[in-house]
Amino acid sequence: MERQNLTSSKRKVQVGFTLAEVLITLGIIGVVAAMTIPTLMTNYQKKSTATQLKKTYATISNAVRLSEEENGELSGWEFEKNGTSTKSIQIFDKYLAPYLKVTKKEVNGSNFTYYKPNGQREASLAILSGKSALYTMLSGVELLVNSGDIQYNPPIIGKAQASCMIIDLNGHNTKPNRFGRDAFFACINTEKGFTMHYSDDGERGAVQRTREQLKNGPSREGYQCSKQGRGMWCGALIQRDGWTISKDYPW
């Protein structure tokens, strides 16, 4: 009887995983994690970016609506006064800032460094030369507005005029500062209202672009949202895709 109990105990002890089996299992788990976690993180970043951009767009659009209720329709705002183009910063201060939760404003700060979708430095935008005003919203989002004449930012679009800005979702002191990743272009246009930027400088008349054109051009200024472009139309592409970042987006 005792011998049977000893045999039974030995059998119970032998049931389980060997050290080699445990190590192999952990190794498999590690490989799977290494393959899936980066993808999960990227998908999370894409969703977070699109959601934050949509929220910021809604906030600024609402500010435009509130301003129109008190100051009249956008088409009547003083984009031009006595034949002279108004400064973009003046339009922003008078018609938008009072309706946004701005916690900080800096004028004519240091030069700002931003990058194209392919990682190359964007060096040809006047708005990045230090001649600009930086507004920090309560959400932490920064709005970089050109302090120059509206007619140069961008030029007159038909009979409409526009004042454009860079929307930086996490602030200029936080990387990657790349158009299409955390920085996006948007404009206030006397015909279209507040929109994500989708036109070429100097274009006249109403501009309509397909999704393919927003992504691959053509664009005289190279604004298309691709690794070969400068990324100024990336916000418009995200908006066109229902505020989502698609698989073919140049992330």
Rank of each mutant, 00 (worst) to 15 (best):
A58L: 08
K81F: 06
Y115P: 10
E78P: 04
F112L: 15
K81V: 13
T113W: 05
S124F: 02
N146W: 12
L138F: 13
N146C: 11
K116D: 01
G140M: 08
K46R: 15
S88C: 15
P154A: 11
Y115R: 13
A63V: 00
K94N: 13
S75I: 13
E68D: 06
I60W: 05
K54R: 10
I60M: 08
Y115M: 14
S85G: 02
K131E: 15
Q151Y: 05
L53T: 01
N71C: 10
N118L: 03
K94H: 15
F92R: 02
L143F: 06
L53Y: 02
N62D: 11
G148A: 09
V64N: 03
T103Y: 04
L143S: 07
I150N: 08
L100K: 06
K94I: 06
K104I: 00
P155G: 04
K55R: 14
S88K: 00
T51G: 04
Y44P: 04
P117M: 09
I157E: 08
E68A: 15
T113H: 09
S132F: 03
A63F: 01
L128A: 14
T42D: 14
E73A: 12
L128F: 05
R121I: 13
V145W: 07
N43H: 09
N118H: 03
N111M: 10
L96C: 01
I127W: 01
T39P: 00
L66V: 09
A58D: 09
A97R: 14
Q45M: 09
T136P: 09
G148Q: 07
V102K: 10
N118Q: 06
L128T: 10
I127Y: 00
P117L: 06
A126S: 15
V102Q: 08
T39I: 10
G72I: 02
L138R: 11
K55T: 11
F112Q: 15
G83F: 04
N153D: 12
K101T: 07
W77H: 05
L74I: 14
N153K: 00
S124W: 07
